[in-house]
Design a protein around this nucleic acid. Structure first.
Length: 267
DNA sequence: ATGCCGTATGATATACGA
């Protein structure tokens, strides 16, 4: 099973890119973030034409929004409200093999990494704390969970182009890294991307629009993630960050990530 | 760290991204 996750920065503006990516990579399940569209305006038909018979979407006007498109059926679907805001940042589905998939869009957090002056940063930390509490409460050794999405934190030193220069930049501050570490600990999550590409090799999934010549400068950050619980670790087969779509005309600032699983032995 | 780009909106400037 091939699983892909991508912050598309507007699904309508990026529809042709999504169609090209899906045609080339053929994910069985595609998780999107920042769809920026209400459910009634979502181009569902385009995804049906690509072969995705099953989907869940949770969107709103202008901001945020997540979606899961799948060739495999769901046995359950869910969308949880975080921090008391129904701002469309989460979807969950269960597959028929019992695997539970969560798609998150964690708040970006604004510019200033100080909760006393920046409510967005406070929201981001609170959101991560709620994730920790929620997964800790549901913790069980045999839970088969996958967590993907734009988590808006680059936790490791080699997840950013320059660790020292980004220590005070939102996405790589110690307090965010600490909050992310607590989510990891909530369910002994395994970082599937680093499972295949260990430190210290740099690994990025996002490059700012403002930096010209993104590929040559390569001032990236790893803001997008794929995690699995220990019960699913034996089924991990490969991982790829697809850089090509970041170079297409009028791209998303995020690159899509694909992870292959072999669930044939899963009971 | 700045850069000064991109998307969306009852828009022609502003919020937001990170």
């Amino acid at each position: 099973m091939r699983l892909a996750t991508w912050n598309v920065n507007s699904v309508r503006a990026r529809l042709s890119h999504v169609e090209q990516f899906v045609t080339e990579i053929q994910p069985d399940i595609l998780c999107l973030q920042e769809t920026k569209v209400t459910d009634n305006e979502f181009p569902v038909k385009a995804f049906r034409n690509l072969g995705y018979e099953h989907h869940v979407i949770a969107g709103q006007k202008s901001y945020n929004g997540v979606a899961i498109f799948s060739k495999l059926p769901f046995s359950t679907t869910d969308s949880k409200i975080w921090c008391g805001k129904d701002d469309k940042r989460h979807l969950a589905v269960t597959l028929e093999n019992g695997v539970e998939l969560h798609n998150f869009y964690v708040p970006a957090g604004g510019d200033i990494p100080d909760v006393t002056v920046n409510d967005k940063f406070a929201h981001k930390l609170e959101f991560m704390s709620e994730m920790t509490d929620w997964f800790a409460k549901r913790r069980a050794d045999d839970n088969k969970l996958i967590l993907v999405g734009d988590l808006n934190v680059a936790p490791l030193e080699t997840d950013v182009w320059n660790h020292k220069q980004l220590l005070k930049v939102v996405s790589h501050t110690p307090i965010e890294v600490d909050h992310m570490a607590r989510i990891y600990g909530s369910h002994d999550w395994i970082d599937a991307m680093r499972h295949f590409v260990p430190e210290p090799e740099p690994l990025f999934s996002w490059w700012s629009y403002r930096s010209p010549d993104w590929k040559a400068a390569n001032k990236g950050r790893r803001l997008d993630h794929v995690w699995v619980t220990p019960a699913l670790k034996p089924y991990l087969k490969s991982m790829n960050i697809h850089l090509e779509p970041r170079g297409w005309e009028k791209p998303s600032d995020h690159a899509p990530i694909a992870v292959d699983f072999d669930f044939s032995g899963l009971t």
